[in-house]
Write a protein that binds this DNA or RNA. Structure first.
Length: 230
DNA sequence: GCGACAG
DNA sequence: ATCTTGTCGC
């Protein structure tokens, strides 16, 4: 699939910060009318400690069966360090390389990281959403910003995530007695729909939504296959 | 100045 | 994210 070229990725932290603030205004936090995603993608990145290489994978699943219908991978050298609040500048390039190899255009993308639940309301999910011009939702395994109460232990229990008085996300228990997930808006989706889909996409026996779980498995298999013949 | 801090 | 085996708890 083709995607827009929004800006250069050659930035230092101060400029990246200014860019996030500027692009955050373009995020659309509303669910399209008659939103019926049929192809749902999951994207994830992997890296070996001490290596300069970053590996990315995007897996497309069909709804409602959740069968994998397409898998693509890509790798490239890291051009930005991991700095909390700037994850998209590290992972964005490789993930977009992978997305460009996709034959099918997904209707929704499940991102491994926060979206709106970010200091400047522009996490990885929002950033990818603008580049791809697709609905995206952020699913993070831990908190970046915000406060919340502990969701009940039952699958499907939620608690609002606040940054001061602003609601920035939903803390969702996808599996009993497992740490909850942090769901937030990415682009072209509302918070309610983002949380609803995050739960719908999660099989009862796992903690992560299938798109994210399968992308994680795919990128690790890809990385290991390359590290092997070397 | 001291913690917190997606992956 | 990565390293890394067994083991505690539902």
């Amino acid at each position: 699939m083709r995607c827009a070229r929004l800006h250069t990725w050659s930035l230092d932290v101060p400029r990246a910060k200014a860019l996030q603030t500027r692009l955050a205004a373009r995020v659309e936090a509303v669910t399209p009318r008659s939103f019926k995603p049929r192809l749902i993608a999951g994207a994830d990145m992997s890296h070996r400690r001490g290596s300069e290489w970053l590996y990315g994978a995007v897996v497309v699943l069909a709804w409602p069966g959740l069968e994998i219908v397409e898998t693509v991978t890509a790798r490239r050298r890291a051009s930005f360090p991991y700095v909390p609040g700037y994850l998209s500048f590290r992972e964005g390039p490789v993930l977009l390389d992978a997305f460009r190899k996709l034959k099918q255009r997904p209707d929704l993308v499940c991102c491994d990281g926060h979206g709106y639940a970010h200091p400047r309301r522009f996490g990885l999910a929002c950033h990818l959403g603008l580049w791809l011009e697709l609905p995206t939702l952020g699913v993070a395994k831990s908190r970046l910003v915000g406060t919340h109460a502990e969701p009940l232990q039952a699958r499907g229990s939620t608690e609002p995530l606040f940054d001061g008085a602003e609601r920035i996300g939903t803390v969702l228990r996808t599996r009993p007695n497992a740490h909850p997930l942090y769901v937030s808006v990415g682009h072209r989706i509302g918070l309610q729909a983002a949380a609803d889909w995050a739960l719908l996409l999660t099989r009862p026996e796992y903690r992560l939504p299938e798109p994210a779980r399968q992308a994680h498995a795919a990128v690790n298999a890809y990385r290991k296959s390359i590290e092997l013949d070397k």
